[in-house]
Every structure is written in C-alpha cells, then in structure tokens.
Simulated scan of single mutants.
Amino acid sequence: MARWEPNAAQRLATAALDLFDERGYDHTTVLDIAQRAGLAKSTFFRHFPDKRAVLFGEDTLTGPLLAALTAAPPAATPLEAVARGLDALGREVFTPERHLFVARRRAVIDAHPELQEREALKGLHLTAALTRALTDRGAPVLAAEVAAQLGALALKTAYERWSGTGGTGEFGTLARQALDEVRDATTAL
C-alpha cells in the first residue's frame, strides 16, 4: 500500500493485530507494525503514542453511550437511560463489521495481565462517566452510582458474549438481555 492511502490508523491497528497473532504482543515492535502497514514509523507515532495505544487509544464507547443516555426522555429511570446508551453501542460501535477486530483485540488483551489491567481501568473511567451523566440528568448520587455499576456489568457481560459468538448475535440484543439479567439478579438479593 502506498504511504498516502487513507485510513492509516485502521491500517496500523489491523497490522498490529496481525503481528500480535503471529509473534505475540511482547515480540512486536512499533517499527514492525508500521512496516506491516506499509507506513513510516513516524506515521505510527502521529496516530498512537505506543503499541499499547493501538488497543486502547481511541475511546469509541463513551461518546455514543453518553449521547444516547443524555438524550433519553426526562422521565426515564437511570437504568432505562443506561439501556438507551447500550442500544447506541450496538448501532454505532459493536457492529457486525467490527466483530472480527473486536474479537481479535479481546484475545490479545486476555493473554496479557498488564493489558487486562488497562482494560479494567478503562472500564472504571467509563463507569465514572456514566455516573456523572446520570447525576447531570438529576438522578440522586447513589442511584446514579448503582445504575452506572449495573450498566457497566451489563456492558461487560454483553461484550464478552458478543465478542465470543463468532458474530452471530446482535450486540444491542445481548446488552438488553444482560441488563435484564443484572436487574433480575438484584431483585433476587
């Protein structure tokens, strides 16, 4: 591929996942990734600060999740607003076209404890953002925190199911099912 071709960030991410599969995360360098993508090392650093950022750099979840949550009807409960956010992730982020990339990303992260830690930290930031958005909607702090935690658990559950299905399930449906299961589990307590 020519260096001037568009979608350099996606090309780099795809090349990185290919190399992580072939050589392992620890045995892949930034230079390897850039060369595999047909780009210069400096192009890599225009898009990502390091190879770990290929897996974590772009926050594709927070924007759609919070936009849909914020747009929920004023009468929606905090958990109903979270459900709207999960629906948005199914339409905008966890699409059939992205399934293979997401599943491959998950496999790399699952194989490395330091990457799992980074993924968990990213989840904590997302939960905090959900809590803030819910309190901005007028939810009491404790209700917002509980809804955010339950929503994060439903998201994690749906993500694990969706990325492990081979692309046979729609994320929005899986997320709603997971949220229902989480809600049912709280009533069983």
Rank of each mutant, 00 (worst) to 15 (best):
R3Q: 14
W4N: 14
W4I: 09
W4M: 11
P6I: 03
P6H: 10
P6Q: 13
A8F: 05
R11N: 05
R11L: 07
L12C: 08
A13R: 15
A13V: 06
A13L: 07
A13N: 09
T14S: 12
A15Q: 10
A16M: 08
A16T: 05
A16P: 04
A16V: 05
L17S: 13
L17C: 11
L17K: 15
D18N: 15
D18F: 06
D18L: 09
L19E: 02
L19N: 05
L19V: 03
L19G: 03
F20S: 03
F20Y: 15
F20W: 12
D21F: 11
D21P: 13
E22N: 15
G24D: 13
G24A: 15
Y25P: 01
D26A: 14
D26R: 15
H27S: 13
T28W: 10
T29Y: 01
V30E: 01
V30H: 01
V30S: 01
V30F: 00
L31A: 11
L31S: 11
L31N: 10
D32V: 05
I33W: 04
A34P: 01
A34D: 00
Q35C: 04
Q35I: 02
Q35K: 10
Q35E: 12
Q35A: 09
R36D: 02
R36K: 12
A37Y: 05
A37I: 01
A37N: 05
A37D: 02
G38I: 02
L39G: 05
L39H: 09
A40S: 11
A40K: 07
A40Y: 05
A40H: 09
A40C: 07
A40P: 04
S42Q: 11
S42V: 01
T43S: 07
F44A: 00
F44E: 00
F44G: 00
F45R: 06
F45Y: 12
R46C: 04
F48H: 03
F48M: 01
F48Q: 00
F48T: 00
F48A: 00
P49V: 04
P49W: 06
D50T: 10
D50H: 12
D50I: 05
D50S: 09
K51Q: 03
K51V: 01
K51P: 00
R52K: 14
R52P: 00
V54Q: 02
L55P: 04
L55Y: 10
F56D: 00
G57V: 02
G57L: 04
E58Y: 14
E58W: 12
D59N: 14
D59Q: 11
T60L: 14
T60G: 10
T60W: 15
T60H: 09
T60D: 07
T60Q: 14
L61S: 09
L61G: 08
T62V: 12
T62N: 14
T62G: 12
G63W: 08
G63L: 05
G63Y: 08
G63N: 07
L65A: 07
L65H: 10
L65N: 06
L65D: 04
